[in-house]
Write a protein that binds this DNA or RNA. Structure first.
Lengths: 131, 131
DNA sequence: TGTAGTTACTACGCACTGTAGTACGGAGTG
DNA sequence: CACTCCGTACTACAGTGCGTAGTAACTACA
């Protein structure tokens, strides 16, 4: 199924792709799963074919958002990066491509409209940097 | 050209769409331009047909990323929001859809990998909030 | 050796984007 | 007034990404 490995961290994921990533991100650290397991999990909330899940996971692997490793006859998958990191990456991507040349103002706008919790999280993160 | 107004602030823009927005964002505040003017500007760097620019600008108007107002026979366009605000909006969108439930960690990851300039901009923006 | 579980390959429809042609209507010019 | 120019409205098509899934092929075990 692996054929045209194509590098590139595209911006946004599709609905199903995100759902699959959500399953993978629920895994305890270091754990990995098979397509079968992801399919079973997804089946509780949506009606999707096993092969559909396989296709999506293969695409995620080609995009290098998940890591695919052979284990016996089957492949096992785990996320390439944590949810937090991928989110941060995409935010940085947006800041670079769209906000280019106006990063400062963009960040100011971001902070100004942020929720109180988010502002607090940012303050703490910045404080932690100052160590 | 205006036909099926369709609400929704889709995440990422295409290459040409971004190029058009860039032209619009270069405008002095309160200014607006015609398709002709945008086309002329874009023509210095890329080879694109007048009608192509018109189509793209019409799509941007339908997406409500730009405002289209009749002025005599022609339409004049200006951005719906500033580059900084749109960038911030998209960053928030990413944080919500992808980072959901892990906003704090995502923000921490964002800050940890941010450039010194970005960190400084964030610090100042947060300080300004504290007024 | 047959059967069940997996992967590999292929395909289709839809939406979005880049690209642009054609047709139509208004405005000014000779 | 007829013509031409400009701008808009409408239409179209190819490429790509995603959701969706079927079929073929392989393999390990009963």
């Amino acid at each position: 199924m692996k054929r045209t490995p194509r590098k590139q961290a595209k911006a946004s994921l599709g609905e199903l792709e995100r759902a699959v990533m959500d399953v993978l991100w629920e895994l305890p650290d270091g754990q990995d799963v098979t397509v079968r397991e992801v399919h079973t999990t997804l089946s509780s909330t949506r009606d999707v074919a096993y092969t559909t899940v396989m296709t999506v996971m293969d695409r995620l692997a080609r995009k290098e958002l998940v890591v695919q490793q052979k284990s016996g006859r089957a492949y096992r998958y785990h996320p390439a990066t944590s949810r937090a990191e991928m989110t941060a990456d995409m935010m940085r991507g947006t800041l670079s491509t769209l906000g280019s040349g106006e990063r400062g103002p963009a960040l100011v706008a971001f902070v100004e409209e942020a929720s109180a919790e988010d502002v607090e999280a940012l303050r703490q993160a910045l404080a932690a940097l100052g160590d």
